[in-house]
Write a protein that binds this DNA or RNA. Sequence first.
DNA 1: CCATTTTATTGTGTATACACAACAGCTCGA
DNA 2: TCGAGCTGTTGTGTATACACAATAAAATGG
Lengths: 86, 86
Amino acid sequence: MVHNQITLFRVERGLSRKDLAAAVGVNPQTIGFLERGTYNPSVELALKLAAVFGVPVDTLFSLNGFPSLATQIASNANRQKEFEDD
Amino acid sequence: MVHNQITLFRVERGLSRKDLAAAVGVNPQTIGFLERGTYNPSVELALKLAAVFGVPVDTLFSLNGFPSLATQIASNANRQKEFEDD
DNA sequence: CCATTTTATTGTGTATACACAACAGCTCGA
DNA sequence: TCGAGCTGTTGTGTATACACAATAAAATGG
């Protein structure tokens, strides 16, 4: 079983399923099936979705599930200083 | 069309297709089809393959193809100092 | 309150990702 | 030289990821 955070990223961007579907070239229902975990998408579709949100595929999809948003954000905050080198 | 570097990572690890297939739970022929680009794998299989090699999915699969190994390694060398913070 | 949008579900059809089997060519070590 | 392992291909079968249509429920905004 593969978990994903599509709904999270889509809602944060203020996109409807129809919007996201258009952005990656699939039907709106397909997005629904993906978000509910009914479909295990192709890596091509996964790459397109990740590209829309500007994140790596591994940020959108995971084999083991994702920790809470709070945990994800907090743990990432510990790496903030690395970005300051850019 | 989705490009991948499966052959590159597999050969570098000294794995046969049979070995890699066993590691991710598919048939050896499936690995062959993936390496030749005949199959567009599921994101679940992509995640398993990436996990075997210890790299992100985006390192193994790409929508736009990969630059030469020389380019990949050289451009990564420019980021070496970021790792020294760990 | 009504109208529009968004979402959920169900159905049908098609393309393809897989499994599995078979075989042929290649490489390499004994 | 032979045999074993790796690879490439071809074929058949099945499950499922998609497209598309229809409908209904829910949410949202006027």
